[in-house]
Design a binder for these strands. Structure first.
Length: 311
RNA sequence: GGAGGUGUGGCCGAGCGGUCAAUGGCAGCAGACUGUAAAUCUGCCGGGCAACGCCCUACGGAGGUUCGAAUCCUCCCGCCUCCA
């Protein structure tokens, strides 16, 4: 009846096996007659063509489990949390109608939170023209001037953001111009049972997993994928800040050798994982599991089953 | 053999007599993050301390000049380029 099915969130830093676990759980539940579908919450896997570099699960790896959140737009299309929220809002009711479980798996903490805690995107509109103007203002007048204008235009909003961060200032100005000065809306919450699982591996081991995956991606043709993408799209697109592409291009251009490219790829992933941990540390209620230790699948299935009966 | 260049903190790279424990970048550590979030931003980042100040160790090595050197001189070591 509800538009929201039980939601199992699988969080954690990159290269810890979130996707694989999500699929395993979905298959296990499917075996018990409960349709479970995976929703990827990954800000780079939404782009078509960024496959190897984003570790997007292949059709084979998906093993027949329905996936959402993948290949939503071309790399030159803007795609923000709000777009993700919209997409998921379409997917969720369908899963609910089938009496299924939604498994939201991914490393983009902000997106995970937007779904599982309910980001009120309607209260925080966006407008391309306003946005363009505000960004131009920021570029010419500078961050200090823009922050100053924000402080007078929308003191409440200004007080709540990092006024040294150009992106935050731009967004706050955009909101201020569109809806005026008002406090940020509280989270909407999730309309159904939710459980958070987090996957993490001890650092030294994780570093190795990351290095291995980086090499595997290069072996699997990441460079060729990057080369092809560059012929069709502007390399400065936000999508290509995904790890692995700049490294591949540098390799193609003869600036670095293959080993260096792999090393850099891994190093960036390690740093990224660190930022992800910082984010998830602040996320309350995560049950952390170590994929290198015990049988996390059993536990994950337990939690999933619990969610279904809590429905 | 001759001419020249170069050696700086984990890496890259400024500094070229004092205001230098040494700009900046990267990496690292900690953190923020309600529409670019694999993004963006902030703080810390030689060691020690009774610590808004002091001490120690530091700019290839050893000496020297100077009140004072990473910065000048000498020798040595390493690397690079050019001429033979």
């Amino acid at each position: 009846m509800t538009g929201s099915p039980p939601l199992l969130v699988v969080a954690g830093p990159t290269a810890t096996g979130k996707t694989a676990l999500a699929i395993d759980v979905a298959l296990a539940l499917g075996g018990d007659g409960i349709p479970a579908e995976v929703i990827s919450a990954d800000s780079r896997q939404v782009y078509r063509g960024l496959d190897i570099g984003t570790a997007k699960p292949t059709l084979e790896e998906r093993r027949g489990v329905a996936h959402h959140g993948l290949d939503l737009v071309d790399p030159d299309a803007p795609f923000s949390v709000a777009d993700f929220v919209d997409h998921v809002a379409l997917v969720l009711p369908a899963i609910a109608a089938r009496g299924g479980l939604a498994i939201l798996a991914g490393g983009t903490g902000f997106w995970l939170r937007a779904i599982a805690r309910g980001l009120d995107t309607a209260a925080l509109p966006s407008d391309a023209d306003v946005r363009r103007r505000v960004e131009a203002e920021l570029a010419t007048a500078g961050i200090a001037a823009a922050a100053g204008r924000l402080a007078t235009l929308a003191p409440t909003l200004a007080a709540g953001i990092d006024t040294r961060n150009p992106r935050r200032v731009a967004r706050a100005l955009e909101i201020a111009e569109l809806v005026g000065d008002r406090p940020l809306p509280p989270p909407l919450g999730y309309d159904g049972p939710v459980a958070w699982l987090g996957l993490d591996v001890p650092r030294p081991l994780h570093d190795r997993w990351i290095a291995d995956r980086a090499r595997a991606q290069f072996d699997a043709g990441l460079v060729e994928e990057a080369r092809a993408l560059r012929t069709r799209f502007d390399p400065s697109l936000p999508a290509f800040s995904a790890i692995g592409y700049a490294e591949s291009w540098a390799l193609l251009d003869g600036e670095i050798d293959r080993e260096t490219a792999i090393e850099r790829d891994a190093a960036r992933n390690v740093a990224f994982a660190k930022r992800q941990r910082t984010w998830f540390r602040r996320e309350p209620g995560i049950e952390w599991l170590d994929p290198s230790a015990g049988d996390l699948l059993r536990r994950a299935i337990e939690v999933a089953a619990g969610l279904m009966s809590a429905r």
